[in-house]
Design a protein around this nucleic acid. Structure first.
Lengths: 220, 220
DNA sequence: TGTACATCAGTGAACGCGCGTTCACTGATGTAC
DNA sequence: TGTACATCAGTGAACGCGCGTTCACTGATGTAC
């Protein structure tokens, strides 16, 4: 087995071209969402931007909803991957360090992908209902699983919990809400009055307090 | 001075009718925003819902942007009023109590007005730039002033600050971000897995921790 | 109190525009033999 | 290696539709004398 010999055969040239076009459509859609908002996403705009005619897109996505579903699912995956990538960077038993690394990855991803961040956590695009058991739900579950893992590790290592919150899952939820609140406000310009240094410093404080909320450490 | 004898004379019947229509337009717009999102707000929809023809609306708002600006400014005012209303309900020197009351009012307002909440703190509607020194900016400043007041009172009463955050304004910002994060996630259905009782309990914990972040108290 | 005039809310017809979507088609790429 | 056929990406014309916006107008309400 010199090459990767999985069940499906190697993708043909046509399949690769098609995948590349799908990717370009998604990227273009994200750019247009950045400019006009997710509710203002138009098939005709995407085609025009790509130098195609509008009917060509129907070969790739049945309609706008199918494209949006793919974008949301991708965003979940991307965020989950960014968080997972921090796993190996800190010693497994350094829970505080892993929590901090996760929070930082969360923040960095949100700042680097504000539109996808909004796609995940913003107001749902009206008129678009995510399929209940579709890729979006599955990808969302993956993200939550990462956070749960962190708490499971915490319990396994015999760390104390937050006495105010008997349930570990709930404690990490609060910590997540704190960090998320900061990150959301920052990513969408609501902390504009602070200079970057101050934001970094405050984010560090916020994560330390959040860790304390989850029972990982006590504030200094 | 038996009646309110201000500079402007009592509003005429016509002026009152006009004000009522303006109000109905705003309410209708909010309902439609709830259904179709802020980016999907259409003048024609509003008119149709109100039983008017579209051109009639041009007597009240020059265009969609002017209406949106009014809605955002109103939302800021409404939230600021809801917070201000808590001022008299708790003893002035009970800072912890006032902070808690403020947080609760914040949460209640957001749950009661999720669309206006999104209008204020969500992703800005693209293609719509708020006038830099317009009513929106002024109303936003009013909200921030309320939070600053709370901190100023804290300093005046000689309460200790959070040693990790030398600046009181910044400390209250972190507390706000924590509470805001929770409230946002809850208002937009991202805490759907929790039953109402659990959400209430967790919100109480979140506010206590947030108060501690601002240096108002230490977590138990 | 009545009359003549001014103001203003709202109508309905009309316009140009861009959207989503369908359809029959062309031409290039891949496959079977 | 060549040929005949199948697959598929993309085109361009066409359609119906609803939008924003303008315009001249009607009729009701308010004001001056």
């Amino acid at each position: 087995m010199g090459r990767t010999e999985t069940t499906q055969p190697a993708p043909s040239r046509r399949e690769r071209m098609r995948a590349a076009t799908v990717e370009e459509i998604k990227q273009t859609a994200l750019r247009l969402i950045h400019e006009h908002g997710s509710a203002g996403l138009r098939f005709a705009d995407i085609a025009r931007t790509m130098g195609l005619t509008a009917p060509a897109l129907y070969r790739y996505f049945a309609d706008r909803d199918e494209l949006l579903t793919a974008l949301v699912a991708d965003s979940f995956d991307s965020l989950a991957s960014a968080l997972a990538a921090t796993r190996g960077q800190v010693a497994a038993d350094d829970l505080d360090g892993r929590f901090l690394a996760t929070c930082t990855a969360y923040r960095d991803w949100a700042r680097g992908n504000p539109d996808r961040f909004a796609l995940i956590f913003g107001v749902p695009v009206p008129g678009y209902a995510a399929p209940p058991e579709g890729p979006t739900a599955v990808a969302g579950e993956r993200l939550m699983a990462h956070l749960r893992d962190l708490m499971a590790d915490s319990a396994r290592l015999g760390r104390r919990g937050n006495p105010l919150v008997p349930d570990g899952d709930e404690a990490v939820l609060l910590a997540w809400a704190s960090v998320h609140g900061f990150v959301w406000l920052e990513a969408h310009g609501h902390l504009g009055s602070l200079d970057p240094d101050a934001r970094d410093r405050l984010f560090a404080v916020q994560t330390r307090v959040a860790a304390a909320t989850a029972g990982l450490a006590l504030p200094a």
